[in-house]
Design a protein around this nucleic acid. Structure first.
Lengths: 215, 215
DNA sequence: GAAAAAACTGTACCAACTGTACAGGAGGCG
DNA sequence: CGCCTCCTGTACAGTTGGTACAGTTTTTTC
């Protein structure tokens, strides 16, 4: 019962790299089995069809993605008490991490599945939607925390602002690939950081005088 | 010589819709020819192979894309003399146009091709890169115009800022699809608009007192 | 250590799709 | 009439996704 999961994990690992490099449709099962060293029967023992592979792939990706954000923003919150400070630090840490990835960000599976929305795999689309809503929840909570302390320079919905983070991440990944410039993504995260800082800074920290001087 | 181009255009139109809906790999030639009412031989008369279809598709898409931006920001420049005012108006017009699209933005072919970067079609990747650089040029020029009049609240590279526009557009398209919410993209454009306004407004228009009060 | 369950292999096969090759036909044009 | 553009028709080859199923090896469990 453990050996099987190990093989399954190996297939998923190989598949993720291939899908991010070439897209889901362009990744053949044949290719995956030769690289993992199993047979086609073996593959279909683990996954009923290619759609199930897509689902498993997405779920795995989202799990890792969540873990990463938990870690980065968790660390940021340890290093900075102030919620705005912590968020800005988190963005910087994320930017640095992305800048240090050799060859740039490998790509986002959520985006891949968005582009490859075949009519039949509704389930994949639903997983995708939940992933996006999850990002929204995560960042919305951070902005609500920030807004409890800082008054934004312009009124803004924390949910929209949360989506802006995901939007710039996804867009940054696409643009980095289009431009063939791995630096573009981390750069854009820093632009976002500037915007957020500009939105909440500016001597408008009137709601909590105790936080004055922290920025 | 006209009949041929008409058929070719019809193929491209059908193909674009299919590719945006399902991805390039998931779009079969068989499907395209039944929908356009020609034969497979007819298809291969117009396109040597599927790669050439991809190239033609991208080129057509980019042309239309450019025309759209020319029109929108051209109109915005007619309606507002001030470069910042014009840019902000352009973003608003674009947001409204995107909000009025039934079913939301159909998707960006540049993003599709980014995801589908098979090793063999280098040419497609290059077209893609040129498209991204073209967006950069377009928006960079606008920001340089703005910066000639307005001092940004924080120092920022106009090129990076230009990429932010493309980044939010591409990311917005992806997130709209992931969330299954067509409103997300136009909403995010308005967030970007707020950010840009915040960056240049704020009584910092000191370089040109003549523009005071215009915003 | 044997039985049972899990994790595969091997083989054979089908349908769909990309792509090749090539012969030929319809229609406009000089 | 002949030439060119724009196709149609047919046949065929290779790859891939997927099914079916019998059999084998490995691992776990009692």
């Amino acid at each position: 019962m453990r050996k099987g999961e190990e093989t399954r994990a190996r297939i998923l690992e190989v598949a993720e790299a291939a899908v991010l490099a070439k897209g889901f449709g362009a990744t053949s099962i044949e290719e995956l089995i030769t690289e993992t060293g199993i047979t086609k029967s073996g593959f279909f023992y683990h996954f009923r069809d290619k759609s199930e592979l897509a689902r498993a792939l997405l779920e795995r990706y989202i799990e890792n993605d969540n873990r990463l954000y938990d870690e980065i923003f968790g660390r940021a919150h340890e290093l900075a008490d102030d919620p705005l400070q912590a968020f800005l630090l988190g963005l910087k840490l994320l930017s640095e991490l992305l800048a240090d990835l050799p060859g740039g960000h490998p790509g986002c599976l959520v985006a891949v599945m968005c582009v490859h929305e075949r009519a039949f795999d509704r389930e994949v689309q639903e997983i995708n939607r939940q992933a996006a809503l999850n990002w929204r929840r995560r960042f919305k909570a951070m902005f609500e925390e920030i807004m409890a302390v800082y008054e934004p320079r312009e009124p803004i919905d924390p949910e929209r602002l949360a989506d802006t983070v995901s939007t710039m991440l996804e867009g940054g990944i696409i643009m980095s690939k289009a431009l063939k410039d791995p630096k573009s993504l981390p750069d854009q995260l820093l632009v976002l950081r500037s915007f957020v800082r500009m939105l909440f800074r500016s001597g408008a920290e009137r709601r909590s005088a105790a936080n004055a001087g922290l920025l």
